[in-house]
Design a protein around this nucleic acid. Structure first.
Lengths: 233, 233
DNA sequence: ACCTGAACACCGTTCAAGT
DNA sequence: ACCTGAACACCGTTCAAGT
């Protein structure tokens, strides 16, 4: 098929920008570097983007477009929400440097709107009213971004070869602290500097959030009922 | 009192940098601008900071140093945690542009360590084991930052005079969407573009988080009632 | 000890000009 | 229609020099 040239070029430029962010951090995404990667002057990009901010917008949209929303099914709403959030996480995790761009841009592109729509839909199913659903949805999606950006043991990609060094350094600096002044920080130095398993870290992050939503949910919706022990799973 | 000149100067430079961020956004914090505000060459800053990154570190530390940790009392752990998180929020809220600096720098300065220490202490009181407490603490503190950075209706401070315009614009663009494709987003347009009350927005944000921690807490600790002992991990 | 000026290698972006 | 080159107003940072 004869692909439309213009559209193709733009996508390829965005892919280059994202690859630069992955390899060398967001600071490496400059009009000059992206152009250079295509053997082209920085000004050539201005055919496809109004300004640099639009390149960053496009990176965020690209990430969101790779989210594969799970099929709707008949499981309870929070199980489905769990999977939606996990699907976002799995897309962001390989792109830690660019992930932060998503926080403020979810509602700015169709793929982000799809994600927001599904999230709001599940919260509506649960019975949340619109305002509360909006707050919860935005906090939920942004929390996934934050999990990726602050993953313990992450450092700048420039120092990628020395990730272990960075972890050891962080751990060492925390271990240096006075155990009288910061007993719990010192005790948790290992967990704060790195994490035993990335998968477990992310699983816990999603669980914490979903547990919060369920907690707020029962607070809001069981006023009529009597005080319950543990809500059914 | 004759104040130590050097220390004073550094603090005053940090205050200037923070003020610039508040007034014109983080992009306005440049060595040249900060120097200019003191009628001094950009190079004069290098007596007090190794490089620009240290200026950003110092801004984060300054913000964290303004957190006033509530006194310990005999209320249940999650009530105290709620207040700790709220005290962080109240410091960050007036400095939305700079707040994001805090996410990756909490463990890099004494005031941040104080905050982390208290948080971990409360989670230890609750009975969380060290690794889980570390994860929860970091996710909790970072969530407060995220709440501030993504507060609905926020826009760049350059456009501060037209904040209402930005909100209206956002709302209008969401209202333009197809109600068939994005029914819940369209229905929530108002809440997504702005928020009825900032105070309520933040209160809900903290509540969601604390509810999550309590949810994970009961999940983790109801099983141990039968086992009597917490299994070491 | 503290600050400066000139310089370097970068930015994003404009504009007129090339093909 | 698409791209370029030169230029502008900025960056962070170096280095040798001033006081």
């Amino acid at each position: 098929m004869a692909s439309p040239r213009k559209r193709l070029d733009r996508d390829v430029l965005v892919a280059t920008a994202l690859a630069l962010a992955d390899a060398e951090g967001l600071a490496a995404v400059t009009t000059r570097r992206v152009g250079q990667e295509h053997g082209v002057s920085p000004m050539a990009l201005y055919r496809h983007f109004r300004d640099k901010d639009q390149i960053l917008d496009a990176i965020a949209e690209r990430l969101l477009s790779e989210v594969h929303l799970p099929e709707r099914d008949d499981r309870v709403w929070h199980a489905q929400l769990h999977d939606v959030l996990t699907s976002l996480l799995s897309v962001l995790r390989p792109h830690a440097a660019a992930a932060g761009l998503v926080t403020t841009r979810i509602l700015d592109s169709p793929p982000g709107l799809d994600l927001a729509e599904r999230t709001l839909e599940l919260l509506a199913t649960a019975g949340f009213e619109v305002e509360q659903a909006a707050e919860i949805a935005s906090q939920s999606l942004c929390s996934m971004v934050t999990l990726v950006v602050t993953e313990p043991g992450r450092s700048q990609p420039e120092a990628a070869e020395s990730r272990d060094d960075a972890v050891r350094g962080k751990q060492a600096s925390l271990a240096t602290l006075s155990p009288e002044q910061y007993p719990h920080v010192v005790a948790a130095a290992g967990a704060l500097a790195s994490c035993a398993s990335d998968d477990v870290y992310y699983a816990h992050g999603v669980e914490l959030l979903v547990a919060g939503i369920r907690g707020v949910h029962t607070e809001t919706h069981t006023e009529t009922l009597t005080e319950t022990q543990t809500p059914a799973v």
